[in-house]
Computed example of a mutant assay.
Amino acid sequence: MIHLQSLLDDSKCYAEVRELRWPEGVRCAHCASPEVTRQGHDTAHPSRQRYRCATCLRYFDDLSGTIFAGHHQPLKVWLLCLYLMGLNLSNEQIGDELGLNKDDVHRMISQLRAGIVAAQPEPTLSGEVECDEVYIVAGHKGHPEAVRRKNRPGRRRRLKGARGRGTLEKEKPPILGMLQRGGEVRIGMLENVQQPTIKPLILATIAPNATVYTDEYDIYARLPEWGYQHKTVCHSRGEYARDEDGDGFHEVHVNTMEGFWSLLRSWLRPHRGISQEKLPLYLGFFQFVHNVRIRGKGLLKPLLTALLA
C-alpha cells in the first residue's frame, strides 16, 4: 500500500514511481537496456532523475514513455488525483479537493481513466460463467450538437430513459456482463442486444466448452451452437435459482452477475450522469477495480502499477 503521506512530497512520489516502474533496476525507456547512467535532474522538476542509455545513446527520465510525461502539473498532483479516483470521487469533488480548474481536472481524469482501461488485459473466462445485461441511461452530456441532431430539447434536470429494454440510439445503451464464478468480470457497452451484436464479445471472452448461465432472454438461445453448455433460469416464472443435480445447491442462477450490477450502479451514482462517449471508460475503470479486488486506499498501488507497466 502507498501511504497518503508519501503523495505530499514530490521526491517521494518519484521514488514510488521508480520502485514500481523498475523493481529490478532502471531500464532504458526506449530500448529496455539495463546499461544506463544518471545524468542529473530535470531543471523544472528537481526530483525527476534524468538518464542516458549506453546502448541506444538516448536520454530519458523517470516519466518518459508514461502517461505522466509532458504535463505541467507536478507528479504529486497526478498521484493525488489517481488516489481520489480510487475513492470514487466525482470530477467536481476531485477538483475541489486539489484546488484545480475544472477543465484541468477533467482532462487529467479522462487521461488517467483511459490509461487504466488501455493497460488492463482483457480476461478470458472459463468454467462456470454468468451472462446478463443491464441498461444504463446515458445521453450526450457535454455534446449539445448531438442533442440537436436528435431533435429533442435538452434535459434540464434528470436524464430519464424510456421504459423497457434500451439501445444506444434510445440513449439507454445495454451493458453486457460476463462473470466467471470465483474469477474475473468483463463488461462492455453495446449498440443493442441482438445475437449478432453479443456473439463477437462472447466468443472473444468466454473459453469454449464453458458452462454459461443466463436468464430466459432469447438472445442467448444460440450459445450451444457457439460451443458452450447453456443453462437458464426463468425469471418470468418467479424462478431465480434452481438445483438441477439434487445436491441441495442451487447452481443455476445469475445472482452473482445481478449483484455486480448493483455495485456498478452504486459506483456510477456519484458521477451524476455520464455521456455515451465516456461511459465505456467508466465501465472499463470499474472492471479493473472489481478484478483487482481492492477498494479504497489500497487501490492506488495497482492503479499506478498498471499505468507504469
Rank of each mutant, 00 (worst) to 15 (best):
residue 189 M to T: 04
residue 211 T to N: 00
residue 167 T to V: 09
residue 138 A to S: 15
residue 138 A to Y: 12
residue 143 H to A: 06
residue 201 L to C: 00
residue 184 E to G: 00
residue 151 N to T: 02
residue 157 R to S: 10
residue 153 P to M: 08
residue 227 G to S: 02
residue 198 I to W: 11
residue 249 F to K: 14
residue 210 A to E: 01
residue 244 E to N: 12
residue 185 V to D: 06
residue 156 R to V: 12
residue 154 G to A: 13
residue 206 I to D: 00
residue 127 G to D: 02
residue 130 E to M: 05
residue 194 Q to G: 05
residue 180 Q to A: 09
residue 192 N to D: 12
residue 251 E to G: 12
residue 215 D to W: 00
residue 234 C to F: 12
residue 171 E to D: 10
residue 245 D to W: 14
residue 156 R to Q: 14
residue 242 R to A: 10
residue 184 E to K: 03
residue 225 E to R: 07
residue 203 L to C: 01
residue 223 L to V: 00
residue 213 Y to Q: 09
residue 187 I to C: 02
residue 174 P to F: 07
residue 224 P to C: 03
residue 135 Y to Q: 06
residue 169 E to F: 13
residue 134 V to H: 13
residue 160 K to A: 06
residue 180 Q to L: 05
residue 161 G to Q: 08
residue 209 N to H: 14
residue 196 P to A: 06
residue 138 A to M: 13
residue 222 R to C: 11
residue 147 V to E: 07
residue 253 H to D: 04
residue 212 V to I: 14
residue 189 M to A: 11
residue 127 G to M: 04
residue 134 V to R: 03
residue 154 G to M: 14
residue 230 H to E: 03
residue 212 V to M: 01
residue 205 T to I: 05
residue 176 L to Y: 02
residue 242 R to G: 04
residue 188 G to F: 02
residue 201 L to E: 10
residue 142 G to H: 07
residue 208 P to S: 06
residue 175 I to S: 01
residue 198 I to Y: 12
residue 130 E to A: 08
residue 230 H to C: 00
residue 242 R to N: 06
residue 176 L to M: 07
residue 247 D to V: 07
residue 128 E to K: 07
residue 251 E to S: 13
residue 150 K to A: 12
residue 189 M to W: 01
residue 146 A to G: 01
residue 240 Y to T: 09
residue 170 K to T: 13
residue 167 T to N: 11
residue 153 P to N: 05
residue 183 G to F: 00
residue 218 D to W: 08
residue 155 R to W: 10
residue 239 E to T: 11
residue 197 T to P: 05
residue 234 C to M: 09
residue 179 L to E: 10
residue 251 E to F: 04
residue 213 Y to R: 07
residue 161 G to P: 01
residue 147 V to D: 08
residue 162 A to E: 14
residue 175 I to H: 01
residue 204 A to R: 02
residue 232 T to M: 11
residue 135 Y to N: 08
residue 176 L to R: 05
residue 240 Y to I: 07
residue 150 K to H: 09
residue 232 T to R: 15
residue 144 P to D: 08
residue 158 R to Q: 10
residue 233 V to K: 05
residue 218 D to S: 13
residue 186 R to Q: 07
